[in-house]
Amino acid sequence: MSLSSLALAYVSDLVRRETAMLYPPEKGYLVESRLQPLAAEAGLSLEAYVGRVRRDAGEQARVVDALTINETSWFRDNTPFRALATGIVPGLLEHRAERHVRVWSAACSSGQEPYSIAMTLKEHLPHDWTAEIWASDVSPTMVARVAEARYGQVEMNRGLPATSLVKYFTRAGSDWEVVPELREMVRPQVVNLVRELPPLPTFDVVMLRNVLIYFDLEVRRQVLHRVRATLAPDGYLVLGSSETAMDLGPEWVRETCGRLQLHRPACTTSDLLSAKQSAAAHDPTLTATGS
């Protein structure tokens, strides 16, 4: 039934090499549960399947896929949504005279991220404020799912607090459907980040999570450059938890909000320097940054 520690170490090394994602020994059961369907399909035991993977580059790619291309969860990693609620929104409340917030979920998969953003904003923006969340993905299938806004039971269980389920979802056959008040906030659209971007508004926050890890350095630089052009000068870029330590180059400055590392556009070299000085001189919480 279970994998030997040697086989586990091989699989976690493989995944780390390909994606930088970490699967330490204590997550062995997770590796097993993800590989189980692949092994069954090959008609092999788990251990024998990993033996085949060692010799077969095609199977290696499938293993990496199974361990990375994950069904996404609600409020994935939690920290970014806590930071949105407690750090980013209070800052925007002070600096957005139009009482409107624009967020871009730039690799939204089946939509859990944009709807989690919508729930967070609904709870933390004053009632007379409005918000729009652009939800894009490279896959038209995924974007269609965002527009459909229906989720199966298994998807609903992933990270969605029961109180939010009760508040923002209704039953629709065997699925659950997002309530209209959240759906009205979300704008699904197909966008390939690797190409020229379609016309987009200026965003206060861009969530670009767990995407850059799949690109080489040059593509990464191009994508970040395009994203920067859509971001307000005092906006925030939120990366995935394994991506925050990346060196994004001189166009960005890093900032800390609670336990979350954020990035903000750096305007010029001198701006960058003064931003660093003021960050050092002042309390480094987000509400204090208003340059």
Partner: peptide, 8 residues
Amino acid sequence: DVRKLTQE
């Protein structure tokens, strides 16, 4: 619907 939930 029964089919979908059973498969889940």
